[in-house]
Amino acid sequence: MTPDQRFARRVQAAIVLFVLLFAYFLAADLWMPITPQAQLTRPVLRIAPRVDGQVLDVAVANNQHVEAGQLLFRLDPEPFRLAVHSAELALEQAGQDNSQLDAAIAAARAEQAAAQASATELQREAARLGRLVQSQHVSRQLYEQTESRRQAAQAKLAAAGARIRELSAQRGADGADNLRLRQARNALEQARLQLGYSEVRAERGGTLSNLQLSSGAFLHAGNPVAALVADEADISADFREKALRYVRLEDGASVVFDALPGHIFDARVTAIDAGVKEGQLDANGDLAAPAVSDRWVRDAQRQRLHVSLTEALPLVLPSGAKATVQLYPRDSRLADLFGRLQIAVISILHYVY
């Protein structure tokens, strides 16, 4: 075989190999998609006090794992105890005020009864004098004086009724529905709640990070002092749109982490995001701004899906750990076989890079 023939054969073999690889990548992108753009994320909670106060003591250390409800640090509770005591005194004062109002209402009703008796008596006396003045047995002056006293008694009776209504409005409802007592009890509950907030506890299990806190520091409500990385993990992976054509929820998957080379974890597709930021339009009043590109073939859009491991990790990986995700969207043994070969090669390559 001449050198030209050998060269021609090599060219033909290279062309055949290129065509086979090209066909393989086309088929793999549809029936056994894989992406290295995946990572493990954990919910991160910002730890912040709900009230202002000075740190009395810190019960945990940085990077320590804590359970839900575990005490993290404590603020000086004395100001909050004093606030609770003050609210208790205010509740007691509210009860005494109601008792005083009850006594005042009773006195006003007694005055009303006395005014009613006086007004009734003067009403009868004025009626008698009115009949006598017509027969000229009494003077008109006496009648007019009696009529004036009757009107004054009626006015005093009306004033007594108004006083009772005023005191009753101040007193409010009886029993537990009394407004003054409800306000005092609400203030007491708020004071007790703030006393409880003086102890800052973990809302969920996780690992504390970036805790830089010491006794004596003064904290303001809402200002974060540490981060709590939760134990729950979510694995998100970005695929080209075309690669997700046949993917459905609960499809099988495999995951390889950069931190655990050679270890392939079984997983399931749990969610597919409804869109990406580029597909979100802001109603800002501006006109549309079409994207302009001078490329003949634009970059493929990527969509995000989430997978969940069906087996436990041998160690706790940090939030942000990189991974590679292999999907098995078709019920095909051949596609599954090649997909598992792909992810196995990737898991071995992780020993290198």
Rank of each mutant, 00 (worst) to 15 (best):
Arg150Met: 08
Gln134Arg: 12
Thr120Asn: 13
Leu17Gln: 07
Gln141Asp: 15
Glu278Ala: 11
Val66Tyr: 01
Gln70Lys: 14
Leu188Pro: 02
Ala233Gly: 04
Ala253Ser: 00
Ile272Phe: 00
Ala23Asp: 02
Met1Thr: 07
Gln123Glu: 15
Gly175Lys: 05
Leu71Cys: 05
Val58Asp: 07
Ala23Asn: 04
Leu337Asp: 11
Ala233Tyr: 03
Gln183Val: 13
Leu341Tyr: 09
Pro36Ser: 14
Asp231Gln: 07
Asp97Arg: 01
Ala289Gly: 04
Val292Ser: 08
Glu144Ser: 03
Ala153His: 09
Lys322Tyr: 02
His263Phe: 10
Pro33Gln: 02
Ala230Glu: 03
Leu313Glu: 01
Ala127Leu: 08
Val269Lys: 01
Leu181Cys: 10
Leu309Tyr: 06
Asp4Val: 11
Arg81Ala: 08
His263Pro: 01
Val66Asn: 07
Leu349Cys: 05
Asn284Thr: 10
Arg298Met: 14
Gln301Val: 02
Pro36Trp: 02
Val19Glu: 14
Arg165Leu: 12
Val58Arg: 00
Val352Arg: 10
Leu122Met: 05
Ala173Arg: 05
Leu71Asp: 09
Arg182Cys: 05
Ala107Pro: 02
Leu71Thr: 10
Ser215Met: 02
Ser198Trp: 07
Arg163Met: 07
Ala61Lys: 14
Gly172Thr: 12
Ser215Asp: 08
Arg330Met: 12
Ile235Thr: 08
Arg330Ala: 15
Gly279Val: 12
Leu122Pro: 04
Tyr351Ile: 07
Ala288Arg: 12
Val307Asp: 02
Ser215Phe: 00
Ala117Lys: 06
Asn178Lys: 06
Leu56Lys: 14
Ala184Gly: 03
Leu72Lys: 06
Asp97Trp: 00
Glu78Lys: 10
Gln194Leu: 10
Asp299Met: 05
Arg248Asn: 13
Arg131His: 08
Gly320Met: 11
Ala191Gln: 09
Phe338Ser: 13
Leu208Val: 08
Ile348Thr: 15
Leu327Cys: 08
Glu92Leu: 05
Arg131Lys: 13
Arg50Trp: 12
Gln100Tyr: 07
Val345Pro: 07
Val269Ser: 00
His220Glu: 14
Ala202Glu: 11
Val256Lys: 00
Gln154Thr: 06
Ala300Ile: 02
Asp258Pro: 04
Gln70Ala: 15
Ala159Val: 13
Leu327Glu: 01
Gln194Met: 07
Glu78Asp: 09
Tyr246Asp: 11
Leu193Ala: 13
Phe7Lys: 13
Gln301Asp: 06
Ala38Cys: 10
Leu211Trp: 05
Asp331Trp: 00
Ala110Thr: 13
Asn284Tyr: 05
Val345Leu: 15
Pro329Trp: 06
Ala90Met: 06
Asp57Ser: 14
Asp273Phe: 12
Asp57Leu: 11
Gln136Phe: 11
Ala267Cys: 04
Gly216Gln: 01
Leu101Ile: 01
Val269Ala: 08
Glu78Gln: 09
Asp331Thr: 06
Gly216Asp: 06
Val60His: 00
Gln70Val: 14
Leu122Arg: 07
Arg46Val: 01
Leu179His: 07
Gln154Gly: 10
Arg201Pro: 04
Glu147Trp: 04
Leu327His: 06
Gly206Met: 04
Gln326Leu: 03
Ile272Trp: 00
Gly206Gln: 01
Arg333Ile: 01
Val276Tyr: 09
